[in-house]
């Protein structure tokens, strides 16, 4: 294909500017391919993150033509039919350089939301039986496929307004653990997320659900947490 893409890529940190590049268009080309081509051929100092290139690791998310996307599985033909691409770092995270964001705060929020499994059994106990079609297991299924890419966090206006807000990714993770029958930290986790900077801050705008590349619905998970916290107040757990 002889066509050329007009690409502008963010260069610099929080203070910086877009720089324009011409990149050859190829069949089945992804946005990540474009960034890689620019780094190998035009701009060796261009910083960006990727690892698996097949939509599993969650490290290559960027803002593509104004929308947060996983770049390794976003085809140029689908996201830039007019052959113009503007590629910027993810929103709502501090920019380190070029397209690389500092994810520290994002993952700290997972910890603040008690986003880790806390079991009650030791290796001497028999393995707990979880029936695949139990309602709780199915509810966990709906939220479990998150790859931590940060796209939902970038799509969320509440995160932009309130930097303390735990955000859709951490709350979605918390909800999948609330539905894990083997977990023993249900009340503790609910205390961590049922705050004004936690699930109660969500406006149900569903930007997260619209942009999640895995088609998860963090808004639904957050609604689950809201309902659980409502019940927990009457049980005296909160």
């Amino acid at each position: 294909m002889a066509e050329t893409l007009s690409v502008s890529i963010w260069r610099g940190g929080a203070e910086g500017a877009f720089r324009a590049y011409q990149v050859p268009h190829r069949a089945s080309q992804t946005v990540l391919d474009v960034v890689t081509w620019v780094q190998r051929n035009l701009e060796p100092t261009l910083s960006y993150r990727f690892a698996c290139r097949v939509g599993m690791c969650g490290s290559c998310a960027m803002t593509v033509n104004g929308r947060p996307r996983w770049t390794c599985r976003s085809h140029v033909s689908a996201v830039a039919p007019d052959l113009r691409l503007e590629i910027a770092p993810l929103r709502n995270l501090p920019v380190i350089k070029d397209l690389a964001c500092d994810m520290t705060g994002f993952f700290e929020k997972w910890q603040r939301a008690e986003g880790r499994f806390k079991g009650g059994l030791s290796r001497r106990d028999p393995v707990e039986r979880i029936l695949p079609d139990a309602p709780q297991r199915r509810a966990a299924d709906a939220a479990i496929q998150c790859i931590n890419c940060g796209v939902c966090n970038a799509a969320c206006d509440v995160v932009a307004w309130n930097p303390d807000y735990l955000g859709p990714a951490a709350l979605n993770r918390a909800w999948s653990l609330q539905n894990d029958g083997r977990d023993r930290a249900r009340v503790e986790r609910l205390r961590a997320v049922a705050t004004a900077a936690g699930c109660h801050a969500c406006h149900s705008q569903q930007g997260c659900a619209l942009h999640c590349p895995k088609h998860l619905n963090p808004t639904a998970s957050i609604a689950g947490l809201k309902a659980a916290s409502f019940k927990a107040v009457f049980k005296g757990e909160l």
Binding site: N162, A194, T195, A196, H200, F230, V233, F234, L238
Partner: peptide, 13 residues
């Protein structure tokens, strides 16, 4: 941050 689960419940009710 302001608020808590009780305020949330009070507002919904």
């Amino acid at each position: 941050m302001a608020g808590g689960p009780r305020l949330y419940v009070a507002q919904r009710l």
